[in-house]
Write a protein that binds this DNA or RNA. Structure first.
Lengths: 248, 248
DNA sequence: CGTGACTTTGATCAACTTCAAGCTACGTGG
DNA sequence: CCACGTAGCTTGAAGTTGATCAAAGTCACG
């Protein structure tokens, strides 16, 4: 998932239309590029920031993939999500300038650091950038909502299928195959993300394999029937509880 | 929960420091007040907006309480959260100008409508307002993360305790008692929010009552031991899975 | 005072977790 | 180049939690 050589600036970055500069004029993109600093290369397992850190920047993924999670007082973790190229990390720190979660590289990856103070200034000068920030924040909220729906009311099978479809969609959007890809996260991260155990994840993947819907070998996933996968997500709701009529 | 008479404008609203104007100078608050329009009174069960609606405004709760939820294709619902006075609803519509969830009044309530186009304009003129918007959005994201953690890795008991503590904190912040309050939502809504069934909610509340930690009668809640409630949330993790060492 | 909506309580059941082994891939050193 | 060790993954059997089904209880309101 290495998409761009190391020192490419925004105007020449192939992610320009998937990232913060989307919708801006070329000279506005150049302005934005000037405030982006400290492109950082992270080896696998390296932390970008830790829960509780002062955090006065956002980070755009340039290459690689990242995992974001919250550590609880009792030592357990909850994986909040995975980040792929073009996505913006650190949005939660907008609240208090302090990160409420940790983010770690799953594989070698590169990030572009965008200092918040400069970004805010630029937002007042470039209305399109402000709009784009709002869009990105709205998207983050909507995607958190999807995650809440997934964790609140789905069977293990549906969670697994939803996860695979989410990856399919995101890889596809990046111009990669949406039916064959390599998982950058381990089973334990998938399980933790989906609110399941590794054993359950393993069993569900095996089950989907037996049904011929996917072919999985270690980290290599091949989706043989996207429609069937979608059908699992759409039907087969966890609890048909209160179905039909609204809760009022 | 009726906090303010109907036609109070922002500078005179007692929620001024809990709502959008927080941190602004008095003349900036007046500017903001000028773009706020259509204060709307909603009777119980009335919808503020529906999932899929075009939505070009944010709504601040002036009084009452609201429930926000997503309807799935199969007719099930997932309650995403509850909104109390001073809180901003409709943030998810920032993504595409279309709401991804429905919001309904739990009791008679009043909202202040803030048109997004005017708000964006004002943000470029008042830097403090832009900062405050970012703070609010960051807070929304952080609170969604809390909900993900809750749904991902907690027992029914812990979910129930967390819910009660969340209400306690929010009522307290509004200047009400944080140990005695009235639930504005029914059991179904609590259950749906927590990813449980009404029966489980009922049993957990009964259990907490038997232990003397709370006294509950219908919608009236009295918290007798806040510390014990907090202890339930902090210890007694759902799965002591992987405790101690990080997932790496 | 009766009706219906909401809630509680009890008994059974299923899904997922837990515990326990065994397997596979990969890297290291002999 | 192969034996060995380890981390990660899979599979099986048993145990729990919370869902489901069913019925009774409570409250509000006409």
């Amino acid at each position: 998932m290495k998409l761009a050589p190391a020192r490419t600036l925004c105007p020449d970055c192939r992610l320009v239309d998937l990232c913060l500069p989307y919708g801006l004029h070329i000279d506005e993109v150049k302005q934005l590029a000037r405030i982006v600093k400290n492109k950082r290369l992270l080896p696998p397992e390296e932390y970008l920031y830790l829960q509780g850190d002062e955090c006065r920047s956002l980070y755009a993924v340039k290459s690689g993939s990242f995992r974001c999670f919250i550590s609880n007082a009792d030592g357990t973790e909850q994986t909040l999500g995975f980040y792929f190229p073009g996505e913006l990390m650190g949005l939660d720190s907008l609240q208090h300038g302090r990160s409420t979660c940790s983010t770690v590289a799953l594989e070698t990856g590169m990030v572009c650091e965008v200092p918040l103070s400069r970004l805010n200034e630029l937002c007042t000068e470039i209305p399109g950038l402000q709009i784009q920030m709002m869009r990105i924040l709205g998207k983050e909220i909507a995607s958190d909502h999807d995650q809440i729906v997934l964790l609140g009311h789905s069977t293990a099978k549906k969670r697994m299928a939803t996860f695979l479809l989410m990856l399919s969609r995101r890889y596809g959007a990046l111009g990669f195959s949406n039916t064959a890809f390599n998982l950058s996260m381990r089973r334990v991260h998938i399980a933790n993300f989906l609110g399941l155990t590794i054993e359950t994840v393993s069993r569900q993947l095996a089950e989907l394999g037996k049904q011929g819907i996917i072919t999985i070998k270690q980290r290599d996933v091949q989706i043989n029937d996207l429609d069937l996968l979608k059908a699992i997500v759409e039907h087969c709701s966890a609890q048909q509880l209160y179905a039909g009529q609204p809760l009022s």
